[in-house]
């Protein structure tokens, strides 16, 4: 099988996969015991309205139809590009989500880049300097940060850097009093949340890369390169690192969902107006269109990331067969 056909085969799997996710999510969300009408109007207000009025509201959201029909309606909304109308705000769900994307991109993008950069470097270095003080420090720190709950780290850092030292802002993307957007202001606000996100996510990848590196360093061609008398640095970073990157590439596709998990908590603490918070809030208040839209878009993002990582994997290591079965 050649590369093109492999890409096509994998690519064509994405659509049914997305379809599957959306059906799963749809069923899950509609299992919610939360009454969307009560969530929208408030418990007491809803109990004052007559049953006919409540039924009218439900009907206007299409909730009186059978489930499969509701799903079809949702699909047509996806095709129309608005993802339905948010129950809570009355705006198109896509617009609601789009409002949260910039903030999330800034935070998660920074977190992602930092995680990648730090893991590659620290992973490679601690593998190369195996069993030195540097390696051990790195190991111990990884263990510590892995074991620390992220919300806890966040509050400690806020306490230290914002309250005690007064260096950094407590929360938000800008000072509430700021009138216009300013990049330094945004960066200043970004430091703490991005740091917490990175510190709690990186350890796993550092360890992973370190282990991959060690495996590769033990391989024949590395021994050969060493035997040829190539400088150690060249051996590690030219030969070993490139090969150790292979599994890491796939993992990069996975880092995204990993980061979203952390982002929910971090966005709540830092009052960061991002997608993670939106997801949890709309899920808790049964805003079906927004939750569905978010799940759908996130899935696309994650699946694409994974897909691209696999392709990159192939490009870097042509030894691998393109077949689905590779045992």
């Amino acid at each position: 099988m050649d590369l093109g056909r492999y890409i096509f085969r994998r690519g064509s799997q994405l659509l049914p996969l997305l379809f599957g996710i959306s059906i799963l999510a749809f069923l899950l969300i509609h299992m919610s015991p939360v009454d969307p009408v009560e969530a929208r109007l408030g418990k007491e207000e809803a109990s004052l309205l007559s049953p006919e009025d409540l039924a009218g509201l439900r009907a206007s959201w299409g909730l009186d139809r059978p489930l499969y029909w509701q799903y079809i309606i949702w699909l047509t909304h996806v095709l129309q590009g608005d993802f339905g109308i948010s129950h809570l705000s009355g705006r198109p769900a896509l617009a609601v989500i789009a409002g949260c994307i910039p903030a999330t991109l800034v935070l998660m993008g920074t977190g992602y880049l930092l995680v990648v950069a730090i893991s590659i470097h620290l992973g490679a270095i601690s593998a190369k300097k195996r069993d030195t003080l540097l390696d051990h420090t790195c190991t111990v720190l990884s263990f510590i940060f892995y074991s620390t709950p992220n919300f806890w780290l966040a509050l400690i850092m806020v306490y230290l850097f914002s309250i005690k030292l007064g260096l950094l802002p407590v929360c938000g993307t800008a000072s509430p009093k700021a009138l216009a957007f300013s990049l330094p202001e945004l960066l200043r606000h970004l430091i703490l949340p991005a740091a917490v996100l990175t510190l709690t996510t990186s350890p796993w990848y550092i360890r992973f890369l370190r282990a991959s590196m060690l495996e590769v360093l033990a391989h024949d061609y590395v021994l050969l390169a060493r035997a040829k008398g190539l400088p150690e640095k060249t051996v590690v970073f030219r030969h070993a690192l490139r090969n150790a990157l292979l599994p890491f590439l796939t993992l990069l596709g996975l880092a995204f969902p990993h980061l979203i998990g952390g982002a929910v908590v971090i966005e709540t603490i830092f009052a960061w107006p991002g997608v993670g918070r939106l997801l949890v809030e709309s899920a808790l208040r049964a805003d079906y269109p927004v939750v569905m839209g978010l799940v759908f878009l996130l899935s696309i993002f994650v699946l694409l990331g994974n897909f691209l990582a696999d392709i990159a994997y192939l490009l870097v290591d042509p030894r691998i067969r393109y077949g689905g079965e590779s045992d």
């Binding site: 994998r10 190991t139 992973f208 370190r210 282990a211 495996e215 599994p247 290591d317 691998i320």
Partner: peptide, 17 residues
């Protein structure tokens, strides 16, 4: 999907055995 390679990551700890 590329299954085998994903799982093959070698054994070696940061501390000597």
């Amino acid at each position: 999907m590329l299954k085998s390679k994903r799982a093959v990551v070698a054994a070696s700890g940061p501390f000597s055995s």
